[in-house]
Amino acid sequence: MATPERPLTLGEHYLDIGQPARALEIMRQMAGAELENPRYWYLRGRALYALDRHAEAAQALRVGLKRAPWDVQLLHLLSCAEQQQGNLAAAERAVLAALQLAPENPALLSQYGLLVAQGGQLAKAQRLVELAARLDPENVYVGRARTAVAYLQGDDRAATRHGREILTQAPEDDVAHYMVGAALSEQGEVSGAKKHFTTAASLNPEQQAFREAVLQSRYYTHWLLWPLRPFNRWGTVRVWMGAMAILLTLEALGQSRAAFIFAIAYIALCVYSWVVPPLLRWWMWRGRRS
């Protein structure tokens, strides 16, 4: 008995190890009966999707669906590829067709949840991802969708909680670290966020978003910006009003000398806030490609 799927296995292996270009190269050399195999089209679609060639991926997946219209994996990936191109209606059609075949598939429910969340239906999205989480509480993909929906809803505490739940299952999940970092920074916990961003970037430094998040968090926690923390904590207007109130109070109490020193110190702080942050930003981002 021959082993006709050897090149496909090699292609799938290259996809599993994050080398979609190699996988595509191998699949390009295949011909004849191999092209009738839906798995070929699924893997081809996966490779193109990983290379951000979403339109070509959708096209390949459609060819596969002509051969196997019942293939849930093909439909799921097609939904993702259409979503990436902004074709939300086509993405929804694909995921609904998949859900008809597998109504309790947690990954499909999560994909549908993310899709409706992108369309602004956050309550429906939450119901879908919660249902998916009940069906498979340990699924990392579901956990990520749940965290993302909570984040989009503005519920940063829930997003942090869901993200940390993923990390108990998969402590080295870079996306979960990034999501927890983002949720924490929304809550003003910049140091905690920095730790998670740093971990995400160390796990996957090739992800531009992770690297940028680390740099941003390093910038915001830099000691040179410590004097400006009141501005970050209470906002510029409140700090100005507070400073004026202190100044006027000191004047009213006849402490003109103290009021003068305070005014000078406050003006120095303002000048510092205008000059130092842009200089620091320039210094930290120097020599980097945008």
Binding site: T9, E12, H13, Y14, D16, I17, G18, Q19, E172
Partner: peptide
């Protein structure tokens, strides 16, 4: 790297 890809990044079982 193709033969012994980091297990934490692996998506499949064969690897």
């Amino acid at each position: 790297d193709a033969l012994a890809y980091a297990r934490r990044k692996q998506q499949g079982q064969v690897g």
